[in-house]
Structure formats: structure tokens, C-alpha cells
């Protein structure tokens, strides 16, 4: 049985907090640059240019990409053949505290009702037990401007796709300029209400794919719906909203739509939408 020491996890968490908050994900940067090329309004280009420049400044000056360094969401995938020595939960929260302090990130965590305790932890920890002996840890510092736009709807089981699609697009329309577009839209379909929300959040971790022209061609000529096709279809519908960068109009309202699906009950069809701002930050390490 493979042994991993909790103490080691602490250091890794600290490192991942800094990495996620300071360095924009390469897939997001690529999507932003491609969006910049596609925009023809001067203001949309100006704003996308500032967002791209921001990632360069953050990296060079070692500053957080955004002052909202989020509520850290921690995704663990623990191989069932691993034995962890020490207190894992404590180690993770210690790691968050140390990373946020070292990276000069913002302390944004308060007691929900008293609102007066400023801390760097606790984070939100999701644990999945998987086969094998790998330990995978991902930190997603989730900003709350966009988290506040989350929607969950429990549909009737036989609702057709066009209505689900309308709900997802409407969620983005309602967010409008307020959650820092261009967005990455995470969608969770199935499971229970809580699980659909988890799936939607986890969908933000999926790599933002660049749709090559051949894919677009394929899509048009093959209307059979797979997840990729649904994502592409939604992305186009959302980008027709003309919300644009910073909500000031343009072709780029979202950079991507990522969907996660899971079986559900015969009586239900939960759909959750979790929006991320353009500063989608996450960092992963596999042990």
C-alpha cells in the first residue's frame, strides 16, 4: 500500500494556490487570444487586450490575476490503494492558509452570518475515491461575482433539450455584465440537486477546447447530439446574446461551455449552471 504523508499535501496545496491565482491557465489564454482576433468592435478588442495584458502583468509582477482570489475549492481524487498518514483535512486547510499568505492573496473568508472573521480557510473540499494508487489534487479559487450567478433547476424528467438549453442560455443572459464576461459556463446534468451543482463546478476544470473548422463542419452535417455538439450549440447560442467582454457588447460572451452528465432518478432531471468569470483559475498536481 502506497503511503502519502499529509504534511506533504500541505506544501503542495500552498504551491497550487499561488500557481492558480498568479498564472492564467494556458487554455484560457489561448481562447482569449483567439476571441481577440474574432472581435471587430474596437471596445471589445480594447477590453480583451486588457485582459490578456493583465495575465502578463500578473505573471511578471507575481500579483494575483484578480483581487478576488476566491473561495478555494479543492477537488481530491484519492486512489483506494493509498494510505494517508496524518490529518488530511487539516493539512489541506493549513496549506490554503500558507499559500494565501505567501502569495499575498486576499483573505475573503468570513462567518456567513456574523461576517466578521477574516481567514484564509477553510476551503470547500470534494473527495472522490477512485481506483489505483494515484492522488490527484486540484485547487479552483472561485471568485464570488460569478459564483453568485449560479442557478439550479429541477426539470420534469421528460423535458426536451430545447427547454434545458433555454434555461442555460437564460442563466447567462441574467448574469449579463455582472460576473465578468467572457464566461466559461459549467453545466451539470443529472444526479441529485447537490450532485448536479458539483458536476457543474467540476466542469470548469475541463480544458477549454478550441473548435477547429473541421469540427464545425462535422457539427453542421451531423445533428446527432453528443456532449461536444451540445456544448458547441450552447456556446453559439450564448455568443449570440451580444453581452460581450465586460458586458459592453461583442461576439465573445463565453469562451466555452463544458457539460458533465451523470445518471439520475426516473422522476427527475436536475440541471445546474455554474458560471466562471474570464479569470478561471485552477491548478492540479498528481502524486
Amino acid at each position: 500500500m502506497r503511503v502519502i504523508f499529509a504534511e506533504k499535501i500541505k506544501d503542495i496545496v500552498a504551491e497550487l494556490c499561488i500557481q492558480a491565482n498568479l498564472y492564467l491557465r494556458k487554455d484560457i489564454l489561448r481562447a482569449l487570444k483567439s476571441a481577440y482576433q474574432k472581435e471587430d468592435s474596437q471596445r471589445a478588442k480594447d477590453i480583451l487586450g486588457a485582459i490578456i495584458k493583465n495575465s502578463e502583468v500578473a505573471e511578471k509582477e507575481r500579483l494575483a490575476l484578480c483581487q478576488d482570489t476566491g473561495l478555494p475549492v479543492v477537488f481530491l481524487e484519492i486512489g483506494q490503494e493509498i494510505k494517508i498518514k496524518g490529518n488530511l483535512k487539516k493539512a489541506i486547510n493549513k496549506g490554503l492558509e500558507s499559500g494565501y499568505k505567501k502569495g499575498f492573496l486576499r483573505n475573503s473568508i468570513v462567518n456567513p452570518l456574523k461576517r466578521d472573521l477574516l481567514r484564509f480557510s477553510p476551503g470547500i473540499i470534494h473527495t472522490e475515491i477512485v481506483k489505483g494508487n494515484r492522488f490527484k489534487i486540484t485547487i479552483l479559487p472561485k471568485g464570488f461575482g460569478c459564483e453568485n450567478e449560479t442557478q439550479l433547476k429541477m426539470f420534469n424528467p421528460l423535458t426536451d433539450w430545447s427547454q434545458i438549453k433555454r434555461f442555460i442560455v437564460e442563466t447567462v443572459r441574467l448574469a449579463g455584465p455582472d460576473a465578468c464576461p467572457p464566461y466559461i459556463v459549467g453545466v451539470g446534468i443529472g444526479g441529485t440537486s447537490d450532485y448536479a451543482c458539483f458536476l457543474a463546478k467540476k466542469a470548469l476544470l475541463k480544458k477549454v477546447v478550441f473548435h477547429p473548422p473541421s469540427f464545425i463542419h462535422y457539427k453542421i452535417h451531423n445533428m446527432k447530439y453528443g456532449i461536444r455538439e451540445m456544448e458547441y450549440d450552447l456556446l453559439n447560442a450564448i455568443n449570440r446574446l451580444n453581452i460581450g467582454p465586460m458586458g459592453l457588447g461583442g461576439r465573445t460572451t463565453a469562451l466555452a461551455v463544458n457539460i458533465n452528465i451523470y445518471p439520475t432518478h426516473i422522476a427527475g432531471l436536475p440541471v445546474a449552471v455554474n458560471i466562471s468569470c474570464h479569470a478561471l483559475r485552477s491548478a492540479t498536481k498528481v502524486l
Binding site: 500578473a58 500579483l63 484578480c66 483581487q67 478576488d68 499568505k101 499575498f104 486576499r106 461575482g145
Partner: peptide, 22 residues
């Protein structure tokens, strides 16, 4: 409407963008 990050050593201010006005 802004709540900056901590100020790193040697800098004037940390990251300092706007927050939601609504």
C-alpha cells in the same frame, strides 16, 4: 468599489480591480 489583495513586499498595492456594484 474595491478590496485589494495584500500588498506584496516592495509594491505599492496588490491586485486591485473593481467588485460588483449591484
Amino acid at each position: 468599489y474595491c478590496g485589494p489583495t495584500q500588498t506584496p513586499r516592495g509594491k505599492i498595492i496588490g491586485s486591485c480591480g473593481p467588485t460588483t456594484s449591484l
